[in-house]
């Protein structure tokens, strides 16, 4: 199964909807509760990051017998210092985001903690975050 969803820059009103849809799909697939919880947390944080910090992009979910994988690919402006962003509490959230109650941190450490494998690449042209999870076949 492969599905792609678009996320718009600063579309706070719809922030979290893709994650909800993903969560529903995973439940329909009978993904085991503990795994579902980790995925839900990671995907939600990553989606919100995309809304707050990026110029928009796409989330792709791929599922086969052995794994569940996500790609978060945005169109920039990139994370200048990934190492700093990996520190708990680091935030570049702007005023608009804070008004919506988002932006306590980028949540990258939390995303990493809630994934089996975590890979992030960033340049001014965009950030690509790959997450993957093993499932019992």
């Amino acid at each position: 199964m492969r599905e792609t969803y678009q996320v718009q820059k600063e579309d706070f009103a719809n922030a979290g909807k893709v994650s909800s849809h993903i969560k529903t799909t995973l439940k329909q697939l009978g993904v085991e509760p503990a795994l579902l919880r980790r995925i839900a947390i990671a995907v939600y944080e990553a989606e919100i990051n995309m809304v707050i910090h990026s110029d928009g992009g796409a989330i792709t979910m791929e599922i086969d017998e052995g794994s569940i994988r996500f790609t978060f690919a945005d169109q920039g402006p990139g994370i200048a210092d990934i190492e700093a962003a990996m520190q708990p509490g680091y935030s570049t959230a702007n005023e608009a985001a804070r008004e919506f109650g988002f932006g306590a941190g980028m949540g990258l450490p939390n995303i990493q903690r809630n994934s089996d494998s975590f890979d992030i690449q960033s340049s001014p042209a965009g950030t690509i975050l790959n997450l993957s999870y093993e499932v019992n076949p």
Binding site: M1, Q28, I63, D64, E65, P137
Partner: peptide, 15 residues
Amino acid sequence: PPVSMAQRLKEVAEI
């Protein structure tokens, strides 16, 4: 009873 991911994927695709 556990159902394999392959089986679930098939069912969801059919639905």
